[in-house]
Amino acid sequence: MVTSTSTSTGRDRGRGRAAALRGARTAAALALLAGGALVLGTGGPQEPSAAGAPRQVPLAAQQEQSGQSEQSGQADCDLYRSVPASTEDGPAVKAIKAKRSLVVGIDLNSYRWGSRNPNTGQVEGFDIDLARAIGTAIMGDPDKVVLKAVPTADRIKFIQEGRVDIIVRTMSITCERMEQVAFSRPYFTTSQRVLVPRSSPAKTMDEALNGATACAASGSSAEEELKTRPVKQLVTVQNHLDCLVLMQLGKVDATMTDDGLAASQAAQDQTVRVLDGEVRPGVMGVAMLKTSTDLTARVNQVLNDYYNGGSWRRAYDTWLKPYLLDDADRHWPTPR
């Protein structure tokens, strides 16, 4: 099974930072949107999410591997902070162009985000479209984009060791990760949702979870959330998809996961549905080397163009819309 621990390093823990610098208005907006960081756990197993709603959390309070969410406390970083967008080629971009290929770290396990079609060997999904768009924009040639599978637990390491140039892999922005790698501006917001079999009478998260046998990926923010709820039994598994297996086999009543993964599960089984109601929001970004500020600026420019040109929405409509309840706008992060 996919290791839950490794995944936990993933996205999450994002904490919004109070925008002391930005004033109360910003803080309020951020709290609303990102609430602090949340994990989007679309990639394999969910990661522990962190971020609580309040955007300001002392770093020390962040507990990476423990999977504890830091709901209280305040983030002391701004998850939306990145370098200004630019079309200039700096030294990092020039170096990548010189080696004639941009290596993008991706996922193979998250249906509709980044997964490998076992029959064709084709890799496809929302993140894959974005990865190809970024690569093509920077390299000017889709053939110069190399997609490499990156294990969830090794994402930061792969960047730091230069084994990939950028990572587009349902990676949550967190304060802690911001210390280790550079993030683009956020390109997706997400939150925790509940899935139940279609036959379930439950209409709300509370109805679905109270007194139920509930499932979550171990180490995920969903697990943390479920611990605070009056469930009859909490079943934790290594990969969020294991929850779907158990739900199909009738061994659990409900599954909590982030909405990206919930969409992914609903896409694979028409007999489950995603309930209204969400908790613990967060944002995802493209990660790269901290020193490659010019590359980050380029990526931010591509992201802006990608969104403004309608590609972001088209990708959303293609891969996610059928399974997410909300409109695309709800998922485009906009710091105000």
């Binding site: 099974m1 396990n109 064709t120």
Partner: peptide
Amino acid sequence: ETARANNRQGYPLGGAYQRYASE
């Protein structure tokens, strides 16, 4: 068989079933 069916539809869920079966 469930793993096979899901896998042939291209669903990663098939992998979860295969791992579950093996377990």
